[in-house]
Simulated assay, not measured.
Amino acid sequence: MASPAPTYTLSDFDFELPPALIAQHPTPERSASRLLDGRTACPADRIFRDLPALLDPGDLLVFNDTQVLRARIFGEKASGGRLELLIERVLDAQQVVAHMKVSKKPAPGARLHLAGGAAGGGFDAILLGRWPDADGPLFRLALHAPDGATPWELMQRHGHLPLPPYIERQQAGGQDPDAAEDAERYQTVFAARPGAVAAPTAALHFDPPVLDALQARGVQRASVTLHVGAGTFQPVKTENLAEHRMHSEWYDIPAATLAALERCRQRGGRVVAVGTTTVRTLESWARSGQAQGDTRIFITPGFEFQVADLLLTNFHLPKSTLMMLVSAFAGYDQVRQLYAHAIAARYRFFSYGDAMLLQRQRP
């Protein structure tokens, strides 16, 4: 009789990480980052530009082509109290959904002055209420610009890149400066569809020379879109994983990508998911049959993957949903060993850190 599958709790995904290993800046070249080949019991230390040699002709790389918005906007309440918005989603030509950081939350109907307000070269917003319901974690706002600019245009004019909380870019007032390196490097070279507040970080390592080498080797490419939300950084607070409420993110899989996936299977190639966001997108489609929509998929050990064979991913936060996903994909014990190796070998962690290549564990 087979032994029962282990039951995991939040504490099982914790680990000690020296703060010095949290990457604060990208490597000088995208593909110069390190790559831990963790497909077998004996991991191999490589450089990311070695990736093409690790894949086979006929394999299919699937990228997330989302583009990070300049979604962080500073302002104040009518009373003068400072606030910060992180626009998570654009609903229409005027309304947005956003996280709000403020000492005391204003009431529905309150007018907020953003980027100096309408009288100071910025714009105003009216707070409409919580979203998606009265207990929702986000706020729905109507933006009012003097010239009728759309939310997209207002973010481009007045917004700041929403760097992850563990990347320190602080100046007077606590606002993030828009460093040139971040404007270029906290965005993938193939970002095409605006809507994310965090980058699909595994894809940040790709540059034109690596893409050219992959094409020359006969590795195919396809794309999906998942607009990464700020919830990707929110810690899991319940020891019992079944009690965690996963954040919602919008995804889309084009018909061309669905066709590419089918051709890959027919020729016996492997599907290589670039990043956990791509895995979540592909597995959401596999489970629901819907090529577009919102997903709250929460992947933990015991999950049965249906699409991805290999996963290219960065190193993730302790106790995070992403740590749980990679453990489900490659096996809990394997991932623990890989993280121990990465820490001992001084790999760089998180968004601007290094990457690893994982193989899906088979039952």
Rank of each mutant, 00 (worst) to 15 (best):
A2T: 07
P6V: 03
T7Q: 03
T9K: 01
F15M: 03
E16K: 09
L21E: 07
P26R: 05
P26F: 05
T27C: 10
P28D: 04
R34C: 11
L35H: 09
R39K: 06
T40C: 05
A44K: 11
A44S: 12
R46M: 15
F48S: 13
F48H: 10
R49W: 14
L51W: 12
L51M: 13
L55C: 10
L55W: 04
P57D: 12
L61I: 15
V62H: 12
R72K: 14
G75D: 01
A78D: 05
L83Y: 00
L86W: 00
R89V: 02
A93V: 04
Q94V: 04
V96H: 00
V96G: 01
S103Q: 02
K105E: 03
R111F: 00
H113C: 01
L114F: 09
G116V: 01
A119H: 06
A119L: 02
D124M: 04
L127S: 02
G129T: 08
G136Y: 01
R140L: 06
A142R: 15
G148C: 13
A149F: 08
W152A: 15
E153C: 08
M155A: 02
Q156Y: 00
R157A: 11
H160M: 14
P162L: 02
Y166T: 05
I167G: 12
I167K: 15
E181Y: 15
R185H: 12
R185A: 11
T188F: 06
V197F: 07
T201C: 15
T201H: 13
A203M: 14
A203Y: 14
L204P: 07
F206N: 07
R221E: 06
A222H: 06
S223K: 05
H227E: 04
G229D: 08
T232R: 09
H247A: 03
H247K: 03
S248V: 04
E249W: 05
A255D: 10
A256M: 07
A256S: 15
T257Y: 01
A259F: 00
E262L: 01
C264Q: 06
Q266V: 04
V271A: 07
V272K: 07
V274Y: 15
G275V: 07
T276I: 01
T277W: 09
V279N: 10
T281A: 06
E283C: 04
S284M: 09
A286S: 11
I299N: 06
P301R: 11
Q306I: 08
A308E: 14
T313A: 13
N314Q: 08
N314Y: 10
F315M: 13
L317K: 09
S320E: 10
L338M: 14
A342P: 13
A342I: 14
I343K: 03
A344H: 15
F349N: 12
F349Q: 13
Y352P: 10
R360F: 07
